[in-house]
Amino acid sequence: MRVNSVDDLNKLKERLQKEHQLKEQTDTIVTVGMSTCGIAAGARKVYEAILKEVEKRNLNIIVKKTGCIGLCEQEVLVEVACPGRQKILYGKVKPEDVPKLLSEHIVNGNVSAELVVVGKAS
């Protein structure tokens, strides 16, 4: 992949935006805050627990990493975005919360009240 001109860059950007929009409309995306602070609070274990759960339950979701969301006090932070719903940011998530959180949110459609930090309009 090489970007040789401004035209190349714009075409690539458009394609990526389209792909992303499509993904947001059809797939559930789970994002874990993985900066040093998050990892110090246990983000790597939460990330692994999510991957394990996805594999075990054969869930059709995309798991992503991101940098610092800013709310260090609430680490580990996990954002769940389901198509057509507002994004929900969960805080202080522990690996053992993951099965319940995913099943409640993605499968049952309920927001895990005790872990929720904030919702974002999608």
Binding site: G67, I69, G70, R85, I88, V111, V118, G119, K120
Partner: peptide
């Protein structure tokens, strides 16, 4: 789905008073 009980991002003071320009991608992109 019942998301009515969830506080929304722009109501949270932590985010409301901020202006995230340099950090706009931090915590949202891979």
């Amino acid at each position: 789905y019942d998301d009515s009980t969830v506080p929304s991002l722009d109501r949270l003071d932590f985010f409301r008073k901020q202006q995230r320009l340099v950090l706009r991608r931090c915590g949202s992109i891979d």
